[in-house]
């Protein structure tokens, strides 16, 4: 059985991984072909992702299913394909936004509260400015670009998987038994109700400062997070703008992102801006992910700002649809249209 996967981002690569893993466990003989129009893996919006595997923090502003599915992603990225570091997440707020942090704590679980000493023990560079924080100990983070490169490498090493880069899938004959369309926003013309939500990020280097885990700063209008990368840089993200402009980082957004870093520690003012980037998050009207089935074609899409958090649970379900004809009403809809419309 040939399964063609279109798109080598977080959704496509995890789907390939889960298909091969489950087929092996079931003793089924399958071949997986991953077709990507770019010249390498993870070049779409995955490239700009934060890489936080933070199901409980996300519960602050998402529906409960995101935390439920996200808990599976923690296992995937720390055990099944261990590229994430489990160092927890820290949530803080400037003193004036303390009410927002208290509100955050009321809407989330799985955290402990920290005072200045507690913060100093985890992230010494933050203790000067913060005396109250929430610590989500069981959460993890990964470096998106490295994680997808490793995943692609692991897949390429398997005898029954092929990766083809620089190939436009529409030029291929429709000869696969199943097709998993994981193109993200590029699938918009074929997916009713898919919209883009713009996000912008920057990467900074601040040799004098050390962060060892993701830090979220609560803010009434511009919540921001900082995620340390293995090369010593820090990713600061991400704006959320309801438009579909892929590549244009605005001055206002850079000011907001830099300001937040500055509020964490004023020494960030002298950090080097290494990169700015933007893309759109593929999203349905409820901002929840979908496996949409059209015969023997599955669309995995709508992962919104949760590409790494929701791709493993979506991938494992898609694999079971293909291999076992399973059905998952909580994330699936048929080609009749959307499960829920705005």
């Amino acid at each position: 059985m040939l399964i063609r996967i279109i798109g080598a981002g977080a959704a496509g690569l995890t789907a390939a991984f889960e298909l091969l893993r489950q087929a092996e466990a079931l003793g089924r003989d399958i071949a997986v072909e991953i077709v990507e129009k770019a010249e390498g893996p993870g070049r779409g919006c995955s490239h700009y992702a934060g890489g936080m595997i933070a199901p409980w923090c996300e519960a602050e502003s998402t529906e409960p299913i995101v935390a439920t599915l996200g808990a599976e992603a923690l296992e995937f990225w720390t055990e099944t394909f261990p590229v994430a570091e489990k160092r927890g997440s820290l949530v803080v707020a400037p003193r004036r936004d303390r009410p927002d942090l208290i509100q955050f704590s009321r809407r989330t679980t799985h955290f402990v509260t920290l005072d200045r000493e507690g913060i100093a023990a985890l992230e010494p560079d933050l203790a000067e400015n913060f005396d109250f924080g929430l610590y989500f100990e069981a959460e993890a983070h990964l470096a998106p670009r490295e994680a997808l490169a490793k995943l692609a490498e692991a897949l390429a090493a398997k005898p029954n998987a092929t990766l083809r880069y620089g190939v436009d899938a529409t030029t291929l004959a429709d000869d696969a038994d199943w097709t998993l369309d994981c193109r993200g926003f590029a699938a918009k013309p074929d997916l009713a109700g898919l919209r883009g939500v713009k996000g912008e990020m920057i990467i900074i280097r601040a040799p004098d400062l050390n962060l060892t885990r993701p830090v979220r700063m609560v803010h009434p209008r511009h919540p921001v997070y900082l995620v340390p990368r293995p090369d010593g840089t820090i990713m600061v993200g991400a704006t959320m703008v309801e438009n579909e402009e892929r590549a244009r980082v605005t001055a206002q957004s850079v000011v907001e992102l830099v300001n937040s870093a500055f509020a964490l520690n004023p020494a960030f003012a002298l950090a080097e801006i290494v990169e700015t980037g933007s893309d759109v998050r593929p999203s349905f009207a409820d901002n929840l992910p979908r496996i949409r089935r059209e015969g023997r074609r599955l669309f995995l899409n709508g992962l919104y700002r949760h590409g790494f958090l929701l791709s493993p649970p979506l991938a494992s379900r898609a694999a079971r649809v293909v291999l076992e004809d399973a059905h998952f009403p909580e994330v699936m809809d048929e080609d009749r249209g959307q499960r829920r419309t705005a």
Binding site: V241, N243, Q252
Partner: peptide, 13 residues
């Protein structure tokens, strides 16, 4: 204002 982007890209929303 912000949603318009460079080319009125807020049409989806």
């Amino acid at each position: 204002r912000r949603e318009a982007g460079g080319s009125r890209a807020g049409e989806g929303f």
